[in-house]
Design a protein around this nucleic acid. Sequence first.
DNA 1: GTCTATACGTCGATAGAC
DNA 2: GTCTATCGACGTATAGAC
Lengths: 199, 199
Amino acid sequence: MPPETNRKGAKGGRATRSEIVAAADRLIYESGYGDTSFSDIADAVGMSRGNFYYHFRTKDAILDAVIDERQAATRAMLEGWAAEADDPIARICAFIRILIVNGEKIREHGCPVGTLCNELAKLDHNAFPGAVEIFAQFRDWLTERFTELGRGEEAQGLALRVLAFSQGAATLYTAFRDDTWVATEVDRMCAWVHELAAQ
Amino acid sequence: MPPETNRKGAKGGRATRSEIVAAADRLIYESGYGDTSFSDIADAVGMSRGNFYYHFRTKDAILDAVIDERQAATRAMLEGWAAEADDPIARICAFIRILIVNGEKIREHGCPVGTLCNELAKLDHNAFPGAVEIFAQFRDWLTERFTELGRGEEAQGLALRVLAFSQGAATLYTAFRDDTWVATEVDRMCAWVHELAAQ
DNA sequence: GTCTATACGTCGATAGAC
DNA sequence: GTCTATCGACGTATAGAC
């Protein structure tokens, strides 16, 4: 089992483990879970396949770690937006603008959450609920923002609509690779949020 | 090479080839391209792996055949809607309602077009443009319908919005598996099309 | 903690009998 | 057209030396 602390070596337990998870995260996003092998990840961190099993016994264990990491990263990102902007409208628009901020990656590899959920659904993988939970984090955060806008009743419906918009836009962006179209849709969606708040 | 005609046997060339493509189509949709092996397809049609190569020399050749078949099926479906309904609004709503008509399959395995495009994009597969072409078929068909509604200028933008909606809804449907939510969103979207036409 | 060596299955693909 | 037998490469995973 990996150690609980990172004591001295330049490649101590925690640090190595973090490197592996970071590499796996990137590779799984770019190539998909099924097409990412132990060798790929080991190569990416400059480590032998054998040593790899000291840190992760199975491929599923890596996936679990990657999903945990993504949940934590999502939490941090949502908190970051809460700190940067102080009104709900700006925060919702910050979410919508991920499509622009992460534009190049989304154009090449789609939304990290949506594509993982779809892949795990097809594989009937038991990590599927963990991936869906990331969607739930966004949904709940958006719901809170719409609630702050005084849309208590319909807050979750509006949150899901924004989430669905970003998923649909991401998929078509990956397919058609049209930067201009995405920019237009993002602007339109942000304008819609502003109108909604003004009503 | 497979024969050009299906002459006599109960398992003549064309028929067998069609069976293979149909089985591959289903398996690729349900499990993804990467996770569908020759053995899986051969088993599904009750054929040995060896004989399989008489019909398709490579896995990519099967994928190409599946994509061709899906393009043809899409064309047929779009023509079917044109025959059933005579006004553009009803036809657009027929498209939106795929989410309900194919509800169970979409809930389990996502949209066949969107999930394939996303997978092929990650694999940098050269069949990717063929899969995107299916999206283009829907886009162009929807564009024609909005043009019929007198929305010449913005017809393609509206078509892409409808397409993006259905993609986003499909992804969240697969993730959250909420039948009620999908039904509500489909109704809302159809109502939006009616309003748009009434303006 | 890191390595090499290796087991064992399955993959895509081929050869050749019938 | 269909089969069995087989290939080499690569997949996950393990054992054990250092």
